[in-house]
């Protein structure tokens, strides 16, 4: 690891600590530093209530969901050797949402059951596998985007059919808002539900650093260097599905963090697909928490949705990358 990469991680952790403090202090009731400390040690009951019941679970979720989004993006980019890969481009969040919506509105389970992340995980896994199967082993940018677009559209269409068939009129608004992605009104039960999946997924992805490095020169070269390609692909796809399944089941669909976060740190780690993993995850956490704070701060009749904000930030970024890589993408299409 380069010296810059070594210092990058502590710097990002300091940034995250600062953002976390800010996230606990701001909201419809602002807390001062003193309120914060008093609340934490439960000397001030109101502050303690705000911190422990409202802002801390919300902040933890934003951090952990952002972490796995950034990590999944970096891992998928490494796996496909393609800087445009993002979980959202695989239709993974949409498919995970479909899985969750299916179990929710067939009424088989209650909203805080473990069945929810499992169903979301199943959806995410199916979508990533489907895109990989359609796009093939050496997926070019165009093939990948088209396959991902198709899978995302399919998941969205199936989700709207589920909404159509839903007997409960409130279900529609609820699902639509949920699909936009939000951390509003989340409790520690949500954290407990999603955490195991996000932890397992993150561990699977963080351990994939060396395989991703080997993949730098192509799949067959990696195999010639002793990598068990099939096994590594399965573990990485499983890791992404697990992490996203957990994340989507509590936060809804939040896009583009996985695309943007690795880009922001790739130069600092000199393109190393292993060294980029942790910084990309930390930047993902910072971006998502910032977006959530922005959602809370912007005055609006109902709170803004984080997913909408990350898309607002991410889409121009995505377009800029496409514009810059136009030549390569055109060559790939021919």
């Amino acid at each position: 690891m380069t010296m810059r990469a070594v210092r990058l991680v502590p710097a990002l952790i300091i940034l995250l600590v600062a953002l976390t403090c800010a996230s606990l202090m701001i909201g419809s009731v602002s807390l001062s530093w003193i309120d914060l400390i008093k609340g934490f040690i439960r000397q001030d009951q109101t502050a303690a209530l705000i911190i422990y019941d409202i802002r801390l679970p919300r902040t933890l979720l934003a951090l952990s969901v952002g972490f796995v989004l950034g990590l999944s993006g970096a891992a998928l980019q490494g796996l496909l050797r393609n800087p445009l890969a993002d979980p959202a481009l695989f239709g993974a969040p949409q498919a995970a949402a479909l899985g969750a919506v299916l179990v929710l509105y067939t009424g088989t389970v209650e909203a805080l059951s473990f069945a929810l992340p499992v169903a979301a995980l199943g959806g995410a896994l199916l979508s990533v596998l489907l895109v990989l199967a359609v796009a093939g082993r050496v997926a070019g940018v165009t093939t990948l985007i088209l396959a991902g677009l198709a899978v995302a559209s399919l998941a969205a269409a199936l989700t709207s059919i589920v909404i159509n068939l839903s007997a409960n009129p409130f279900a529609v608004t609820e699902i639509v808002f949920w699909l936009l992605g939000s951390f509003e009104d989340r409790s520690f039960r949500h954290v407990a539900m999603a955490a195991p999946f996000m932890v397992i997924g993150s561990l699977l992805l963080l351990r994939a650093g060396e395989p991703l490095r080997a993949l730098t020169l192509g799949e067959e070269t990696a195999e010639s260097l002793g990598l068990s390609l099939v096994r590594e692909r399965i573990l990485i796809v499983l890791g992404v599905a697990c992490a996203l399944g957990g994340a989507v089941s509590v936060s809804g669909a939040i896009g583009f963090v996985g695309l943007v976060a690795p880009h922001l740190v790739r130069d600092a780690v000199k393109g190393d697909p292993k060294a980029v993993l942790l910084p990309a995850a930390l930047v993902g956490a910072a971006l998502t928490l910032s977006a959530d704070m922005l959602a809370r701060l912007v005055p609006a009749p109902t709170e803004l949705k984080v997913g909408a904000l990350t898309a607002l930030m991410g889409v121009p970024f995505f377009l800029a990358i496409i514009a810059r890589r136009r030549g390569a993408i055109a060559a790939d299409a021919s």
Partner: peptide, 20 residues
């Protein structure tokens, strides 16, 4: 045909040969 996607230093690319 080799492919270079990530902006790795030449020395790091060569070092991948030590993986086995």
């Amino acid at each position: 045909t080799g492919q270079a996607v990530w902006p790795l230093a030449v020395r790091s690319v060569v070092a991948l040969g030590r993986m086995p």
